[in-house]
Design a protein around this nucleic acid. Structure first.
Lengths: 332, 332
DNA sequence: TATCCTTTGACTGTAACGATTTATGATGTT
DNA sequence: AACATCATAAATCGTTACAGTCAAAGGATA
């Protein structure tokens, strides 16, 4: 039925090893033989069986990608970065969604290792002890993308979340705001709690401003949460005049909340976001935002993975890529 | 190094065939033996090698997914639907981006078949003759998701694009508009040219209105194209007062274009979109839109694929799922 | 009841599966 | 004759699948 390397060998009057050699571009085949083999391959429409190849060579040229949710733009962007670099290096990708669920992450890791992937890139907002252990015991390299592991023991690529957040809040402070709110996604996620929030606090304290816990709101990273956050915060006795939002959707929710209740952005209310997805340009006013370069993070993570799989020497396995703030109109 | 089925067999004093049977849940193993084997598996941390299994059984429990671009929300949504159903049926997914490029599509098909996937779900806006042929010759089942193949020869899942578009334009006509514009992505894509545009034309003609070619604009499916489309169309001598937009981004671009030049939506200008992504609720006014249920399309496509892979009888391989129009505020 | 035959249950042994890889052998050059 | 070069055969890789084995349990027959 299916044509195998053996059929090609027979048809071309050579051994299967020779066919293997021409398929894999090995030098030790004389041109005439190579040509003959290639012709037979063409004629028989031979297509090497990657599974057999994987069994024999113990390499599958496939890498696993575990992300929280592909339908979330932020992760999709990263996935695209990962995939682009992967194809560049001739790897294929097994993609799976974890929904930030530890149990799923663990199972996924296990089935991917069972499938003999050559490496894994993973995004996880919370590297739990169990997860940490699984990563540690993995027989193939794993790199974390846009995810912090506090032990700093694994290969990873990130931006400096703390510094970036600090700068964002500072921008608001410089514009003279005295009441600045912090609105983010779940504080179980390390990036939100240990970096965005801590940076916010430090910026406030460094500016000799009062740290008011009631200005700190955390729920989901969604548009609706943004609207809700606006409602609770604007109902405060002494409401904030500026917002540091953990995501674009949150920021847009905040802005629409403000606008719906008659406030002008940025004249009366200023909002700075942390993401800079393509949404940022699709609101009025357009968002000023810390750029969280997910595509690049994915791409760099995948590149790092190829190096490790290749056993190249890595000078620094915790890559920090530069960040910047894109200034548009939600901040004066 | 790695523990194999053979190690387990030796350690448990049974043959590897028996181990294989307990791993695969075969009945012919007496409970005591099963327990013993399971214990050894646990102790040795044995993890079946899916590659070896794939070679022996000729099944990989992985399916290929070829989509234009995962970083585009519409496809990401579909990918999520596909993946959810795939996991439900214990399949993994090899995901790749084609960028609507025929050559890439062909190569991807080839490498996926090389990897011995058990089936493929594909999204392609233009099923070219070559592509058609490749699909036809595929040794494993392929289902098209949200993609039309005009020969109607392959398994596919779609909505009734023509009817949905017709209804959308009709809505605008009912609201009394005499000048209705058509703004879509590339007309090379079958859905745009054969369905959205044709339905638009028919609706206009059926209403005894004049079909004005200058009201038909086609470029990208992006926000910027929407803005551009507004600019060219509003500069017309007799500009349109209503727009049928092929995507949410296009619709938002149109709306922002209108608003930036002082027009009120929906009072002076009405816009109806075709997509209904989560963006639809994130603009003011919120978009009235034909809902293009990509998640469902992906899910149903994957489900259909499992049936075909399972050799179950399929009553209808061209699935049309119901559509509806979500009414919000960009249309009165 | 004793005998023989067939079934069933619970395994075992081993040949695929379709490549890669290594040791070995043949060929041709200098 | 020595030395590269190229080609070959055979051994793996870790499973599954199929054909058997062997003992125990019925069932039928005389």
């Amino acid at each position: 039925m299916t044509v195998t390397i053996y059929d090609v060998a027979r048809e071309a009057n050579v051994s299967m090893a020779t066919v293997s050699r021409v398929v894999n571009g090995n030098q030790n085949v004389k041109p005439a033989t190579r040509k003959k083999v290639l012709e037979v391959i063409e004629r028989l429409e031979y297509r090497p069986n990657a599974v057999a190849r994987g069994l024999a060579s113990k390499k599958t040229t496939t890498v696993g990608v575990i992300i929280p949710d592909i339908s979330n733009n932020i992760y999709a962007e990263a996935a695209r970065g990962i995939e682009d670099i992967a194809t560049m290096y001739r790897y294929n990708i097994i993609l799976a969604n974890s929904d930030q669920n530890e149990e799923k992450e663990l199972t996924l890791l296990d089935t991917m290792l069972g499938k003999q992937v050559d490496g894994i890139v993973m995004m996880s907002d919370a590297v739990t002890p169990k997860l940490h252990q699984s990563i540690e015991h993995s027989p193939v390299p794993i790199v974390l993308a846009g995810s912090v592991d506090e032990s700093n023991q694994f290969a990873s690529v990130n931006i400096d979340y703390f510094q970036a957040s600090y700068e964002a809040v500072q921008l608001l402070i410089e514009n003279g705001h005295k009441r600045i709110a912090f609105v983010s996604g779940p504080l179980q996620y390390t990036i939100n709690s240990k970096f965005k929030l801590e940076a916010y606090k430090k910026a406030i304290v460094d500016a000799n401003m009062e740290l008011d816990e009631s200005l700190i709101v955390s729920d989901d990273d969604t548009y609706d949460s943004g609207i809700e956050a606006w409602e609770t915060l604007s109902a405060l006795e002494n409401p904030p005049t500026a917002f540091f939002a953990g995501s674009d959707e949150l920021a847009i929710g905040l802005i629409h909340g403000a606008q719906d209740s008659g406030k002008k952005v940025p004249n009366e209310i200023e909002v700075i976001s942390f993401e800079n997805s393509k949404l940022a340009r699709m609101v009025r006013p357009q968002l000023t935002s810390v750029v969280f370069p997910l595509y690049d993070i994915g791409a760099v993570a995948m590149r790092l993975l190829t190096k490790i799989m290749n056993k190249e020497k890595i000078d620094n396995q915790s890559v920090i890529i530069p960040h910047r703030i894109e200034k548009r109109n939600s901040v004066k």
